[in-house]
Design a protein around this nucleic acid. Structure first.
Length: 894
DNA sequence: CCCTGGTCCCAACTT
DNA sequence: GGGACCAGGG
């Protein structure tokens, strides 16, 4: 019982209310994870609930892994069985790998195999999806100027997230564009079905459909899981909501944890309604609020609360903290993005030094709205010789060479995957050109075969020039050999594998490999500790280095689900020495592993050899990446995973998963920062159009979401929060920098909580903005001396140490920007001097609060035209968007 | 058929 | 900064 005493009364109530629906409204930093883990521990230790009958859904694999570890520590060693802690997507994949064939329907023609996907389906990522859309559009002759494949893909995904099928989308469409999308959507579905492929959204949808239609599957899960926990409930979308309801069944032993102020994924279909209307959905729901924040100082909390208080759609709460006062919120206005980054680097360097002197481990984060902002910070930190870690951005799996190899594996797993086949059929070049591929596609269309089937057809019917036929046969042979290897029948390779030196001899710990689809995060782990330490590449969230071999592995109940176990044995991927009927509890790692196949592929295709011949730094970096991929595959082998599982990992690994808690400096998007905390946080790019992002500025609901995002960012800070902004920012490399307007969120922070940093002259810039002082947004300059370093850097380059931020001159206001550029040898022009700018008493800027006699208070969204003609668009809560002529509308500052 | 270099267009967040 | 696409020579 002792561990419950560590909780405050509300937390304790949340933990102890185990039966029936519970909604825990957990404010930022209020101990949400703690409540979930303690609740699981309480169920197991005090309520005698079987661990494996508890299912917890988290947002990222990393969160799942962490939660698993924390539960483990609490209940330590009580049981071999573990609760299932998983992301929605991973959970669905495992469900589908197990039972998707229950969705197959018998073919109309007798003797034909049933219609529907099989267990070895592949998962299509966004790039694959776009390729599908693109090829369909090409085939149907849809103009891709007006409607880009990207747009179509996004809209199909939108429809799926709202659970609309093509027909429903068509019926709802109010414009020809949407009608066309609906049509393409229909074709898209056909294409995926033919390729035996599911996209990300399908993973959820098909799992829901499976539970809805297959009663025995549903019953299996009802028996299996008695207690459900959903983390980040505010970010669940419609399919996730349905899945949860289906899994909860009639029992409603459901605990949802969330915070409506941290809902930041509506663009992915997350429905804030789910949390706002929980009580309607579950009639006897108990609501528990956690309002004590254990993370931040009072100043930080107050500032963040003040910002989010401007939102209308929220339940409202009063977060409080025992950490009175604290450092004020820093604000730094940089002349441009580079200086903003240098300022942050400088500050972090000093902070890190001081933290080390105090004997503390420094941990700082730089947060930004868009991943492309990371580049400047990376450069600045490198110049300071600081090590940093970037989360997200261009991921490992998006690199060309990695996608190539993964595509090969996908084709080997499922040759009908035409998108992957298309990618690798001539990579590296093997003489299969445009013309040949066109012919293959035509054959596929005529016969209804996949491209793989079309190859055979083309070769047999000699529809292709002889030289290409040889190439095609070679390719065919390559894939077939690899498949034979996987099936354990490719003798030559098997002999090689058998003769493999030491690492193959590693005694493999017998691991319990369950195929019940629910082992989630706690799946069997077997590895050689010595080998383990060598792998730098962190493949997934599932291998905890402190996890003992053989200790884990969830225990499946004996109930046999809809599809029989033997079905899985037919699957090419469950290959092993013991053959199809192997006793699963002692099933060894597959003797021919994914790593072996990868090595075989690299060897046979000459992929690395060709890169070596290139002899460029890029080529060697690609080779390194491929080495890492092989390492990842070896890890996978040591975890006794099949090819399926390896590919599922690769598909579902999330950007946020590569967050490394030990890193002293972390760079990441605001979205990726959800759930994390840092003593020092920089929130950068606080400019209208960047944050809030330009695409959201005219849509009130989306502005509210941006504000929540801001709230999420601010509440990551424990001790110090610094807000920054660049007066000038380059949009894309080449163009002239554009002047920016401070983010409205800056103005929402009470002035008394702010301290301006890096100011070396009187007056605070933010105060000037607040007083509505006129500022031009029409500056431009010519770069005459490309090599000129920033004044601040010149000092640094001469070796002057910097005690305070930005050791040289810091330029912090728009007025001295001319001086700044002049010092850099740039000609600076003011095309519209600020005195002429029509922004006097009446000049309302986007982001400003105004009062209208009829509509009350509102926020300016947009400004068009100048002087007398200026029109402004204002969002009035309750009245919506109004476009007003500034001269006539009796607006005043609110 | 393959490779190269030039040009054009794009760039929000992510399971 | 970079990916996709195209024209033109090997």
């Amino acid at each position: 019982m002792s561990f419950l005493d560590q909780l405050n009364p509300q937390q304790r109530e949340a933990v102890e209310t185990t039966e029936g629906p519970v909604l825990i409204l957990a404010g930022a930093g209020s101990g949400k994870t703690r409540v979930i883990t303690y609740r699981i521990a309480h169920l197991i230790e005090n309520k005698g609930v079987m661990p494996e009958s508890i299912l917890a859904m988290t947002f990222t694999n990393k969160a799942a892994a962490e939660m698993g570890e924390r539960v483990e520590k609490l209940v330590g060693g009580l049981s071999i069985a573990k609760p299932v802690i998983s992301t929605f997507h991973s959970f669905c994949v495992r469900m589908l790998r197990r039972d998707i064939e229950a969705l197959r329907i018998p073919s109309a023609t007798p003797g034909q195999s049933p219609i529907g996907l099989t267990r070895n389906f592949v998962i299509y990522d966004e790039a694959d999806q776009q390729s599908v859309v693109k090829s369909i559009m090409k085939r149907l002759g849809v103009d891709d100027k007006q409607l880009t494949p990207r747009t179509v893909q996004a809209r199909i995904s939108w429809a799926k997230n709202h659970m609309l099928d093509p027909q429903e989308l068509y019926l709802r469409s109010a414009d020809p564009k949407t009608e066309r999308v609906a049509h393409l959507y229909e074709e898209y579905r056909k294409q995926l079905r033919q390729a035996n492929a599911l996209d990300f959204d399908d993973l959820l949808l098909e799992a829901v459909r499976l539970l809805k239609t297959a009663a025995n599957v549903r019953e299996y899960y009802h028996r299996r899981f008695q207690y459900l926990l959903i983390d980040e409930y505010q970010d669940t979308n419609r399919p996730q909501y349905e899945l949860m309801r289906l899994l909860a069944g009639e029992r409603h032993n459901l605990c949802a944890v969330g915070d409506e102020d941290q809902s930041i994924y509506s663009w992915r279909g997350a429905d804030i309604r789910n949390i706002l209307e929980f009580e309607q959905d579950f009639s006897k729901a108990k609501i528990i609020r956690l309002e004590q924040n254990y993370r931040s100082t009072q100043n930080i909390l107050q500032a963040a609360s003040a910002v989010v208080a401007n939102n209308v759609r929220r339940k409202g709460k009063n977060l409080w903290t025992a950490r009175q006062g604290g450092t004020r919120i820093g604000y730094y206005e940089a002349p441009d993005g580079e200086n903003e980054a240098l300022f942050a680097a400088d500050w972090i360097a000093r902070y890190a030094r001081e933290a080390v002197e105090r004997g503390e481990e420094p941990r700082a984060a730089v947060l930004y709205r868009t991943n492309s902002q990371s580049r400047l910070f990376e450069e600045a930190l490198r110049r300071y010789g600081l090590k940093y870690h970037v989360v997200g951005g261009f991921s490992f799996y998006q690199r060309a060479e990695i996608k190539d190899m993964i595509s090969y594996l996908k084709v080997i797993q499922n040759p009908d995957d035409s998108i992957s086949l298309l990618r690798v059929i001539n990579t590296p070049a093997r003489g299969i050109g445009r013309g040949t591929i066109d012919t293959l596609e035509r054959i596929a269309l005529e016969t209804g075969l996949s491209l793989w089937g079309a190859i055979q057809e083309a070769v047999q019917r000699q529809l292709i020039p002889p030289r290409a036929v040889t190439s095609l046969k070679n390719f065919q042979q390559l894939i077939e050999d690899a498949r034979a290897m996987l099936a354990g029948t490719f003798v030559e390779q098997l002999e090689q594998v058998a003769a493999r030196p030491p690492s193959a001899e590693v005694p493999r710990v017998a691991a319990a490999v369950t195929d019940d689809g629910c082992d989630g995060n706690s799946h069997a782990t077997a590895f050689n500790p010595e080998e383990f330490g060598n792998f730098s590449f962190d493949f997934g969230a599932n291998e905890g280095s402190d996890e003992l071999p053989g200790k884990s592995g969830s225990v499946d109940s004996d109930e046999t689900p809809a599809s029989e176990r033997s079905v899985s044995a037919r699957n090419d991927n469950s290959v092993g020495l013991n053959g199809p009927a192997a006793d699963l509890s002692t099933f060894p790692a597959p003797i021919v592993s994914t790593a072996d196949i990868l090595k075989f592929l690299i060897d046979r295709t000459g992929y690395i050899k060709l890169l070596e011949q290139e002899d460029t730094p890029e080529a060697y970096s690609r080779i390194e990446n491929l080495d890492e991929l092989v390492n990842a595959a070896m890890d996978s082998r040591d975890r006794a995973e099949t090819l399926d599982q390896f590919l599922d990992h690769a598909a579902l690994i999330a950007d946020a998963d590569d967050y490394d808690q030990r890193a002293q400096i972390t760079l990441m998007s605001l979205h990726a920062a959800k759930g994390l905390e840092f003593p020092l946080v920089f929130l950068s790019g606080l400019e209208e159009g960047l944050f809030p992002h330009s695409r959201t500025m005219l849509i009130p609901d989306e502005i509210e979401e941006e504000r929540r995002l801001c709230y999420v960012g601010m509440t990551r800070a424990m001790d110090q929060l610094i807000l920054t902004r660049a007066v000038y920012r380059r949009r894309y490399g080449s163009d002239l920098p554009e002047a920016s307007v401070p983010s409205r969120f800056l103005e929402e922070v009470p002035g008394s909580l702010i301290e301006e940093l890096g100011t070396n002259r009187a007056g605070t810039t933010l105060a000037r903005w607040r007083s509505d002082e006129a500022v031009s947004s029409h500056y431009s300059y010519e770069d005459e001396d490309q090599s000129a370093a920033w004044p601040a850097d010149r000092g640094r380059e001469r070796g002057q140490s910097s005690k305070t931020a930005g050791s040289g001159r810091l330029y912090n206001s728009i007025e001295n920007i001319a001086e700044f550029f002049a010092s850099r040898g740039k000609k600076f022009t003011l095309s519209k001097p600020s005195v002429d700018e029509p922004m006097g008493q009446r000049g309302f800027r986007p982001g400003q609060r105004v009062r209208h006699p009829k509509y009350g208070e509102g926020t300016v969204c947009q400004r068009e035209g100048e002087g007398e003609e200026a029109k402004i668009t204002v969002q009035f809560p309750g009245f919506g968007l109004k476009k007003l002529v500034e001269k006539y509308a009796q607006l005043e500052r609110a």
